[in-house]
Amino acid sequence: MLKVVAYRLAISIPVLVLVSLVTFLIASLAPGNAAIAILGQGATPEQIVELQQRLGLDEPVIVQYADWLARAVRGDLGTSLITGQPVTQAIGQRIQPTLSLLIASIVVVSIVGCALGIFAATRGGVLARIIDILTFAGLAIPNFVFALYLIPFFALTLRILPASGYSPLAEGLGPWSASLVLPVIAMAFGSVGLIAKQARAAMEDALGREFVSMMRANGYSRASIVYRHALKTAGMPMLSVIGLASVGIISGTVLLEAVFAFPGLGGLAVQASGQSDIPVVVGVTVMFTIFVVIINLLVDLGFAAINPKVRLA
């Protein structure tokens, strides 16, 4: 188990470096200028050049990145070119809404999707067809479009949930949960059907194995066969699709945070991109990459728990 963790953490380091480098280059080459964003369109060329020199933007891009990387390995992601605020502090102020949305969405998608898939595999019938329809609808309709229909119905017509905004956990569990319901439903819409479909296929394959027939012949209970033995066999394919869906959820938070006016990392990244605030853009991108690394690590640990042979990889 420790070898799996150590290996994944080791290969994540070059991934983080590569992602930060590519993001830094793209952000540097993109149209826009932080000096102009600070001084305004009425600034003179001399003022812009002077501010660029003060901010270090006149240096070659690779030199700017090397300087950023040297500080990043010490835990310093730089400071915002616009506000002068440390990037780690800006991320810390915005991370709770994003983490709340991510964790709640992944938990709901995993539990509901797997439960539907297992039930469809063991019962079949109408539920299996419903899952097929749900999967098709989830793939065809973007989650932010689905969110635009949820808001008028639940927030304006029924008036039972807030239309937008985020309530911090410090304000109480009730307001915090209420602010997450619609974003989580919108986020889960595109992934529940996909996970359910893959879970159903994995369970049907497991239930069709020879060892299951032998267990039935030996009088094992249905619950023991399904939940203790077949589920373990189907666990690795189910974990794989949960991992893929979780990565998709991470990428989808930017749009949903905008739709529901969440003060999270997605909004911070969009704002920084519009202002050519390179340190903030790179810092947020690195943070999202860390989220992906954590998801992959958890999936690998799940594999190792299900199949001991994985621990030797």
Results as ranks from 00 to 15, higher is better:
A72E: 04
I130Y: 12
S100E: 08
G165F: 11
N33T: 03
A121H: 10
I91P: 01
F189G: 06
S246F: 11
V63W: 10
I130E: 03
L239R: 09
A34D: 12
P263Q: 11
T253H: 04
P279G: 10
V241R: 04
E171I: 00
M287F: 15
Q85C: 02
G75W: 14
R200T: 03
I91F: 07
A128C: 00
G75L: 12
V280P: 05
R216I: 11
I91W: 10
A137W: 12
E50A: 15
D300I: 06
A304C: 06
D132T: 07
T79F: 12
T44Y: 09
R311L: 00
L150M: 06
F288E: 01
R123G: 02
I141G: 01
L148Y: 11
W176Y: 15
F144W: 14
N33G: 04
M187D: 02
G125Q: 02
Q96V: 12
A155G: 02
I242R: 04
I185E: 05
I131Q: 06
M287C: 14
D277S: 07
V107H: 03
L116D: 01
I111L: 14
L21E: 05
N307H: 10
P175T: 06
I91C: 03
T83S: 15
G75N: 10
D277T: 10
G267L: 14
K232Q: 14
L57P: 03
M214N: 06
G78T: 05
V15M: 15
H229A: 05
V107T: 07
M1F: 04
L29Q: 09
G266I: 09
P60E: 11
L51R: 13
S110I: 00
M238T: 13
A115H: 00
V109S: 08
F153K: 00
A121V: 07
I11H: 09
V192Q: 13
D205E: 15
G235S: 14
A70H: 08
A223Y: 10
S12D: 01
R216Q: 15
L127Q: 04
G113I: 07
S276Y: 11
I278V: 15
I38Y: 04
E50P: 03
W176P: 04
A269H: 07
L182A: 01
A258M: 07
L180A: 11
F291K: 00
G267Q: 15
R8T: 06
I111S: 05
A70N: 05
S105H: 14
L312R: 14
L194Y: 11
A202M: 09
